[in-house]
Design a protein around this nucleic acid. Structure first.
Length: 827
RNA sequence: GCCGAGGUGGUGGAAUUGGUAGACACGCGGGACUUAAAAUCCCGUGGUAGCAAUACCGUGCGGGUUCGAUUCCCGCCCCCGGCACCA
C-alpha cells in the first residue's frame, strides 16, 4: 500500500504556491543576484502541450528551482507565440475565429503548465496576438524602418501555393514549405525585407556566448561568409567590338582567371534582355520562361543535368583579352554574389560539366603542387586533409582539378601558388579598376511580410501625395480588424485587402487619402524581441522599461529546440543588435547561455497530428502525478539528446519516489552515522555536479543509489532535510510535502542548496583492480593511505595474481593510486 | 557531396586529461509473503564453457600506438541532425 498519494499532494501544493504567490518574482529585489531563466514560448495549438513540451519545460523549470536554491533571484516567465498560420488555417476550416481558438488553447495550456508545477511568474506573461503586445512589434518594425533597415522591393520570392503566402528563405526546407510541406515556387512580388545582411559579419561573432558549438556552426554556415574578388568583364560582340556594358562577377578563385573561357549569367540577371542578340532572343526567352516555372526542388535536384543557352553576347577576359561567349544557365543563382560567374571549366565541377555538355573550351591554368611543397588544398583552412592530395594523384583524372596548386598558362603569374595569385591578380586588376577584394554572404535579407490575416499589421500607409509613410508611434497599434473574410482568394493578396474600413485611411503627414499596407508580419518578428518584454509585461506606454532591461537582461539561460538555430535564434540576435545600435538597450547579445533539448520521437518518427502518433502527457500526470512524469522524462537520457518515447519504465520512477517518501519516515539510525554522512555528502556532490551540466538522468540515478543504500543504514534528522532539499528541484511537490513533514521552515525552495563537505566523503579503504599483462586477474582492497610497496605486495599476494607471476620475469610494475595495479611479465 | 553529433547487454542508458566496461532503471528468471493474485521485499541477470573456482570472448567493422583503448591515431560501414549548383 503506497503511503504517498502524489496526485492529491500535488494539487495541495500547487494551490499553496498560488495562494502564497511563491513564484512571483520581485524584480526590484537586488539583494540577491538576478537570474533570467527562459524557455522558448509555445505556440498555442489545438494539440495542447505534448510530451515534447514537457521534455523541454520540466527540466528547464528544475533548473530554475535549482538556481533559486543556489541563492539567485530567479525570474522564470512564460507566454504564448500566438500569431501564425495554424490558427488561421483552423479558422478557414472550421469557421472558429483565431481570437476564440487561441484564447481557448492558451487557457488549456496554462492549466497544463500549472499542473506541471512550474514556477512561472504569470504576472509577467505575453501573448503575441494581443494588441498590447503587437503594438510594440509594430514599434520594432518602425525602429528598423527609420534606420533604413526595413525596405520594400520587388523580387522573386518563395511562394507557398498551399499556404497562399510568401515564405522567408529560412522557412523553405528542402524546397518545401516548412509548415505544410507543399513544394515552393517563385513569384515576383513586392515585399518587405529587413536588412539582416548588414549584420552578417556581426552575427558571425559569438564572443562571450556560452552556446553549443554545433549551433554556432549552423549559424555560421547559414550566414556563409566567403572571401574573394569581384572582377569586371566588358561586353562586346563576336568581333571584340565593345558594347559599353559591363558584367561584374564574384569569384573566390581569381587565380584561375586566365582559364575563364566563358561567362554565365543567371536567367534572372538584369542585363540578360539587353545583351541578348536578335538571333538568340527566342531561345533565351523560352529558357527563362522554363526556369521560372520550375520549383526549387526540380531546380536543385542532385543528379540534374545542367542546362543553359547562349545569349549571343561576348565578354573580354580582363586577364588575357580573350573574347569569351556569354551564356545564361540556371545553375547560376541570381541571389548570390552578382548573379554572374566567370566559368573556369578546367577547375570547377559545375563549369566543367556545363562546358563538356555544350562543347565550350577548357583551359588548364592550375597544376597540382609537387610533393615537396605539399599540396595546398581548399581544405587548408579546416586544418586537416592537406596531405590527401598527394596520396592519390589519380583521383582527379576524370574530373576537373579544383584544389589549390601552382599557376600555369597564366602570363606573368605563372609559377605562383594559388594563394599568392589570388592576391597578386586582384591587385594587378585593381589598378586597372577592373577587380577588387570583396566578401560575400549566403545570408539573404529577411523577408518579413506575409499575405495572411493572423499577424501584426505592418504599420505603413501609402499616400497618393506623400508616397510610403510610416504610421507615427503615437498612432500604434494599427489594430487587426476582427471581422474579416480570411479565406484565401488565390490572388496572392492579404485578406486585409478586402476590409474597406481597414484599407482606407488618412495620410498621417498630409491628411490626404491613403491606403494601409495590408500585409502582416512574419511571426518570427513577434518572437524576435519577446524576451525584452517579459520584465515589463504590463507596461502600456513603452515596449520595455529601460531600467528593467538594464537590470534583468540579457537572458542568463535560454532553453529550446535546435530547430530554431537559423531562424528564431538568428533573428532575435539581429533585432537585439539593431535595438542596441539605436540606443534602446545596452547589450548586443540577448542570450548568454543556450541549451537545446533533444527531440522526443514516437516509434522513431517525429510526433505529428498527421502521423497520428502524438502522445499526450495528461494521462500519465493523472495516473502518476507530475513529479513522476517529470522525473521519468529526465531519466530517459541526457537532456540534449532526446529519445524515443515509451512508458515502459515509468513504474520504476513511481517506485523510487514512493521509496524516497518512505525513507524519510524511517526514524532510526540502524547503521553507522559516518557511513550515512559519507553517503549523503557523496550524493550532494554528484547531484550538484550533474545538475550543473544538465545531466538530470545521472543526478536521479545518484538519488536512487542514495535511497537504496540509506534504506539499509537508516536516517537522521540532518540527512532527512538534506535529502529533501536535494530532490526538490526535480520533484518539487514531493519535496514540499516532505519538507513540511521534517519540520523545515517555509517553502523548501526558500532554503539553500546543500553543500558537500569533502572531509566527510573520504573513504577508509579502496578497491583496486590488479592486472597482469593488461588482463584483470584480481581485485584487492587496501587502506586509502597505503604506500606503493604495501599495495604492490598486497596485489602480488592475491592467489590469482601470484599464479600468473610465478616463474616469470617481472618487467614492470604500474601503480595508479585508487585505481589499479598492473604487472608486466616477460612471456 | 559538405558540416556536426552518434553507434555500448533483451531495452533506456552509465563510465572518456587512456586505468576494474555495463552505474541506475526497465524487462526477464528464481524465491519470500498470500487461499490466490496484485503490491512489496530478497537473490540472480553481457555472451560461451563449467557444479564452482575460473577461462575465453565482448563497447559498429578492419588495422595501429600502449603494460593497458569504449576513450588516442589511420581506413571503412551504418544511423541521426543541418546545409546543399553559394562560383
Amino acid at each position: 500500500m503506497p503511503l504517498y498519494n502524489a496526485v492529491e499532494n500535488e494539487k495541495k501544493w500547487q494551490k499553496i504556491w498560488e495562494d502564497t504567490k511563491l513564484h512571483r518574482t520581485n524584480l526590484e529585489d537586488f539583494s540577491k543576484p538576478k537570474y533570467y531563466n527562459l524557455v522558448m514560448f509555445p505556440y498555442p495549438s489545438g494539440d495542447k502541450l505534448h510530451i515534447g513540451h514537457w521534455y523541454n519545460y520540466a527540466p528547464a523549470d528544475s533548473w530554475g528551482r535549482y538556481m533559486k536554491m543556489k541563492g539567485f533571484n530567479v525570474f522564470e516567465p512564460q507566454g504564448f507565440d500566438s500569431f501564425g498560420l495554424p490558427a488561421e488555417n483552423y479558422a478557414i476550416k472550421t469557421g472558429v475565429h483565431p481570437t476564440v481558438s487561441i484564447s481557448q488553447n492558451v487557457g488549456y495550456m496554462r492549466e497544463q503548465l500549472h499542473k506541471m508545477g512550474t514556477m512561472y511568474d504569470w504576472d509577467k506573461s505575453v501573448v503575441t496576438s494581443e494588441p498590447d503586445y503587437y503594438q510594440w512589434t509594430q514599434w520594432v518594425f518602425l525602429q528598423l524602418y527609420k534606420k533604413g533597415l526595413a525596405y520594400r522591393k520587388n523580387a522573386p520570392v518563395n511562394w507557398c501555393p498551399s499556404c497562399q503566402t510568401v515564405l522567408a528563405n529560412e522557412q523553405v526546407v528542402d524546397g518545401r514549405c516548412e509548415r505544410c510541406k507543399h513544394e515552393v515556387t517563385k513569384r515576383d512580388l513586392t515585399q518587405w525585407f529587413f536588412k539582416i545582411r548588414d549584420y552578417a559579419e556581426r552575427l558571425l561573432n559569438f564572443e562571450g556566448l556560452d552556446w553549443p558549438e554545433r549551433t554556432k556552426l549552423m549559424q555560421q554556415n547559414w550566414i556563409g561568409k566567403s572571401t574573394g574578388s569581384q572582377v569586371v568583364f566588358e561586353l562586346c560582340n563576336e568581333k571584340g567590338e565593345k558594347s559599353g556594358e559591363k558584367v561584374t562577377v564574384f569569384t573566390t578563385r581569381i587565380d584561375t582567371l586566365f582559364g575563364a573561357t566563358y561567362m554565365v549569367l543567371a536567367p534572372e540577371h538584369a542585363l540578360v534582355e539587353k545583351i541578348t542578340t536578335d538571333k538568340h532572343k527566342k531561345n533565351v526567352a523560352e529558357y527563362i520562361e522554363k526556369t521560372r516555372k520550375e520549383t526549387d526542388i526540380a531546380r536543385s535536384a542532385e543528379d540534374r543535368e545542367k542546362t543553359g543557352v547562349e545569349t549571343g553576347a561576348f565578354a573580354i577576359n580582363p586577364a588575357n583579352g580573350e573574347i569569351i561567349p556569354v551564356w545564361i544557365a540556371d545553375y547560376v543563382l541570381v541571389t548570390y554574389g552578382t548573379g554572374a560567374v566567370m566559368a573556369v571549366a578546367a577547375h570547377d565541377e559545375r563549369d566543367s560539366a556545363f562546358a563538356k555538355k555544350y562543347g565550350l573550351p577548357i583551359q588548364e591554368v592550375v597544376a597540382p603542387t609537387g610533393g615537396s611543397l605539399g599540396a595546398v588544398t581548399k581544405n587548408e583552412a579546416t586544418g586537416g586533409g592537406a596531405e590527401k592530395a598527394d596520396q592519390n594523384p589519380q583521383s582527379q583524372s576524370d574530373g576537373p582539378f579544383t584544389e589549390y596548386g601552382i599557376l600555369i598558362n597564366s602570363g606573368e603569374f605563372t609559377g605562383l601558388t594559388s594563394e599568392e595569385a589570388r592576391k597578386k591578380i586582384t591587385e594587378w586588376l585593381e589598378e586597372k579598376k577592373s577587380a577588387n577584394f570583396t566578401v560575400n554572404y549566403k545570408l539573404r535579407d529577411w523577408l518579413v511580410s506575409r499575405q495572411r490575416y493572423w499577424g501584426a499589421p505592418i504599420p505603413i500607409v501609402y499616400c497618393d501625395k506623400c508616397g510610403e509613410v510610416a504610421v507615427p508611434e503615437k498612432d500604434l497599434p494599427v489594430l487587426l480588424p476582427k471581422d474579416v473574410d480570411f479565406t484565401p482568394k488565390g490572388d496572392g493578396k492579404s485578406p486585409l485587402n478586402t476590409v474597406e474600413s481597414f484599407v482606407h485611411t488618412k495620410c498621417p503627414e498630409c491628411g490626404g487619402v491613403a491606403k494601409r499596407e495590408v500585409d502582416t508580419m512574419d511571426t518570427f518578428v513577434d518572437s524576435s524581441w519577446y524576451f525584452l518584454r517579459y520584465p515589463s509585461a504590463k507596461m502600456s506606454d513603452r515596449p520595455f522599461d529601460t531600467g528593467m532591461t538594464k537590470n534583468w537582461l540579457p537572458v542568463d539561460m535560454y532553453i529550446g529546440g535546435p530547430e530554431h538555430a537559423c531562424m528564431h535564434l538568428l533573428y532575435a540576435r539581429f533585432i537585439n543588435m539593431v535595438l542596441h545600435d539605436l540606443g534602446h538597450i545596452d547589450f548586443e547579445e540577448p542570450f548568454k547561455r543556450l541549451i537545446h533539448q533533444g527531440m522526443i520521437t514516437k516509434d522513431g518518427a517525429k510526433m505529428s497530428k498527421s502521423k497520428g502518433n502524438v502522445v499526450s502527457p495528461d494521462q500519465f500526470v493523472e495516473k502518476y502525478g507530475s513529479d513522476t512524469f517529470r522525473l521519468y522524462l529526465m531519466f530517459m537520457g541526457p537532456f540534449s539528446e532526446g529519445g524515443d518515447w515509451n512508458d515502459k519504465g515509468i513504474t520504476g520512477i513511481a517506485r523510487f519516489l514512493e521509496r524516497f517518501y518512505q525513507l524519510i519516515h524511517v526514524n532510526e539510525l540502524v547503521g553507522d552515522k559516518a557511513a550515512l554522512q559519507r553517503l549523503l555528502h557523496k550524493t550532494i556532490k554528484k547531484v550538484t555536479a550533474d545538475i550543473e551540466v544538465f545531466h538530470f538522468n545521472t543526478a536521479i540515478a545518484a538519488l536512487m543509489e542514495f535511497v537504496n543504500n540509506a534504506l539499509k543504514i537508516g536516517m537522521d534528522d540532518e540527512t532527512r532535510k538534506a535529502a529533501t532539499l536535494l530532490i526538490a528541484p526535480l520533484a518539487p511537490h514531493l519535496a514540499e510535502e516532505l519538507w513540511e513533514k521534517v519540520g523545515g521552515e517555509g517553502s523548501v525552495f526558500e532554503n539553500s542548496w546543500p553543500v558537500f563537505d569533502p572531509a566527510l566523503i573520504v573513504e577508509d579503504s579502496v578497491q583496486l583492480g590488479v592486472q597482469v599483462n593488461g588482463k584483470l586477474r584480481a581485485q584487492v582492497t587496501v587502506d586509502v593511505g597505503a604506500d606503493k610497496d604495501t599495495v604492490l605486495a598486497a596485489a602480488k599476494a592475491e592467489p590469482n595474481v601470484a599464479k600468473y607471476l610465478e616463474g616469470k620475469k617481472l618487467v614492470k610494475e604500474i601503480y595508479v593510486p585508487n585505481k589499479l595495479v598492473s604487472f608486466v611479465v616477460a612471456v
